[in-house]
Design a protein around this nucleic acid. Structure first.
Lengths: 154, 154
DNA sequence: GATCCCTTTCGGTCGACACTGAAATCATCG
DNA sequence: CGATGATTTCAGTGTCGACCGAAAGGGATC
């Protein structure tokens, strides 16, 4: 007997969450993200997420707050509805990734400061120089690459 | 009265360690890395690192093992010397950074699997598609960019 | 093989953080 | 304004991992 699509999707959500857990995003936050990327309909309330993902209301609340804060999820309230609805904000993924690239490139300021402290002693600065050159190159190329990213189609 | 170069260097090492602590490298590991990048002479024993960085022998041992394992530090033993000497391996920084870039690009396999699960329902796949397109582009461009990296001068 | 010195291993402590569930809070509707 | 149904806050629990320091382990010299 074959496994249903929804079952396989929830396994996928778990893999998705596991990946981002390695990057420091709480497991439940990752599950919310994965779930909101594939659920139908696209909007969910906190209570629904709590039930669907089998997580406490408190955890859902904390993680939604975090995700809304970094922009990956948007919150919508409607008059006449007590429950807010949450949905994925696909647009925000660009900034999310950009932050990661910037984090890598930002090491250059660090190595650069180090080089300054060692100016006047090229011998001693040699190890740092090797690293500084790499990050120097990255801090040029990564932002440049990012600018060439394709625009999202309407 | 001005601050000595060594004092400023140890402040720099601390900043350096703090940066990598955010990326998940233990504080003491980061200190070792920073210290080995700028110390004179370039090689140090575990005992020297322990004293210089005011960390326990156990922590130094654990972190050196880790750093040697990922290749950022190399261990050298010499006949007639009981103490092994550790030094920075500048070369390994390229692989270190490459792993980071790959980690970003690797999300593409995840989104791709998700797209497969949603094939046959383009409506529902739309959110994921946006994200998949971005990572798809990255998984093309990042490795390509990396290939263009300048070779380290002799 | 005994001694010396250095390194690794290991048990234990501490602090951070994710998570829970109950209580407080808030918004809507009658 | 009270009741209802939702969310947020908060105190408490458990887990995980970095760190320490003492004890065990390994080489090198005598």
């Amino acid at each position: 007997m074959s496994v249903g699509r929804e079952t396989r999707l929830s396994a996928w959500i778990e893999r998705f969450a596991a990946h981002f857990a390695e990057e420091g995003i709480p497991l439940i936050g990752g599950r919310i993200l994965g779930y909101l990327l594939v659920c139908q309909p696209v909007e969910r309330t906190a209570a629904e997420l709590s039930q669907e993902l089998e997580a406490s209301s408190g955890s859902i609340s904390t993680n939604l707050k975090y995700l809304v804060n970094v922009g990956l999820v948007t919150k919508r309230t409607r008059r006449g509805r007590q429950a807010a609805e949450y949905r994925i904000n696909e647009k925000a993924w660009t900034e999310f990734i950009q932050r990661k690239l910037n984090a890598i490139a930002s090491v250059q300021t660090l190595t650069d400061d180090g080089m300054r402290l060692l100016s006047g002693d090229p011998e001693r600065a040699q190890r740092l120089k090797t690293v500084d050159r790499l990050y120097g190159w990255l801090s040029e190329e990564l932002p440049a690459l990012w600018e060439r990213r394709p625009a999202a189609p309407k």
